[in-house]
């Protein structure tokens, strides 16, 4: 059991938890992730490590409640714990001195972008951060981001806070202005919904600006064993868990990825319904199905 030491509600659906996991904290670096299981019946879900404290032996996880597992995790409190936390997994972000760079963070992607932004700034880059969300209530960490950025642009899709725009709009403006001024942007990072990363990559392509995206796919073990996370790239299929999670956004077959992440949509819905239903009472159908399927567990 990995104890939850701190919990913050960043928005209605976004939770932050500081978790005791010394084995992960000792090696964790920006860009890496962990596999978390809520309880014994839980599924293995990948979450990016938003921060870590080696001395305290803790890591910070931030997640948006989108399915049954994350909703259930969101209900946990300080003193509760996770059944399993494995990691750190994946390659860390490569950070060097590039010059001017842009970090584009969408929604819950703000969390994993924070340590990358901080490292880029510490390496001496001129960091422009664009953070956005559907609406104001989904935004968090504006001040934290401002503190590690040279310039910060905040936007919302509906205009409820900051500029009313998709993150790609200010991105294109900056890329064009800097290219015209001969002070081009050297590199772009994008973390957020897959569709956002697709359009960020499309926006940077005409400028040939190297673009790093952090992919979030279907994944089971997270160690290269299942291959469920494979992504079609222009140079062959790659596994997000061991080859990534960061990739060259210009090489990703986005439409294939967008299709693949929908594969278990119906089951996700079924899991939520089953769970909400079970909060009231146990369904007789489940009892029957359990008796049917579980007799082999004795």
């Amino acid at each position: 059991m990995y104890k939850i030491l701190e919990k913050q509600v960043l928005s209605d659906v976004t939770k932050l938890m500081v978790v005791e996991a010394p084995h992960v904290a000792r090696k964790a670096r920006a860009g890496q992730f962990v596999i978390v299981i809520a309880d014994e019946q839980g599924e293995r879900i990948p979450l990016t490590i938003a921060d870590h404290d080696r001395a305290a032996g803790t890591i910070t996880l931030i997640f948006q409640e989108v399915g049954k597992s994350t909703q259930q995790m969101g209900e946990l409190d300080v003193g509760d714990g996770f059944y399993s936390v494995a990691g750190p997994l994946g390659h860390p972000t490569e950070v060097e001195l590039y010059g001017t760079v842009i970090c584009v963070a969408g929604g819950v992607g703000i969390a994993p972008m924070y340590p990358i932004t901080r490292e880029l700034k510490a390496a001496g880059n001129h960091v422009i951060t664009i953070m956005g969300a559907r609406n104001k209530s989904l935004l968090f960490w504006e001040e934290k981001m401002r503190a590690v950025s040279d310039e910060l642009i905040v936007c919302t899709d509906d205009g409820s806070y900051g500029r009313k725009a998709l993150v790609t709009e200010p991105l294109k403006e900056i890329l064009a202005a800097r290219a015209a001024g001969g002070d081009e942007v050297k590199k772009v990072w994008a973390i957020g919904p897959t569709i956002m990363m697709k359009f960020v990559s499309a926006a940077t392509a005409p400028f040939e600006t190297p673009t790093v995206v952090s992919l979030n796919t279907i994944m089971v073990d997270g160690t290269g064993m299942c291959g469920g996370c494979r992504v079609a790239m222009t140079d062959g299929a790659k596994f997000v868990c061991v080859d990534g999670p960061e990739f060259d956004g210009h090489k990703v077959d986005w439409d294939n990825l967008l299709s693949r992440i929908q594969f278990y949509k119906a089951e996700e819905q079924q899991a939520i319904e089953h769970w909400q239903h079970a909060e009231d009472h146990e369904c007789n159908l489940d009892v029957a199905a359990r008796e049917l399927a579980a007799s082999g567990e004795s």
Binding site: Q41, E43, V220, C226, A271, A289, R290, A293
Partner: peptide, 17 residues
Amino acid sequence: TRVNLMKGYRFPEYDTP
């Protein structure tokens, strides 16, 4: 792995489909 380790054959009682 979904079937054995994660007991996917007992979904949705177990979370892994």
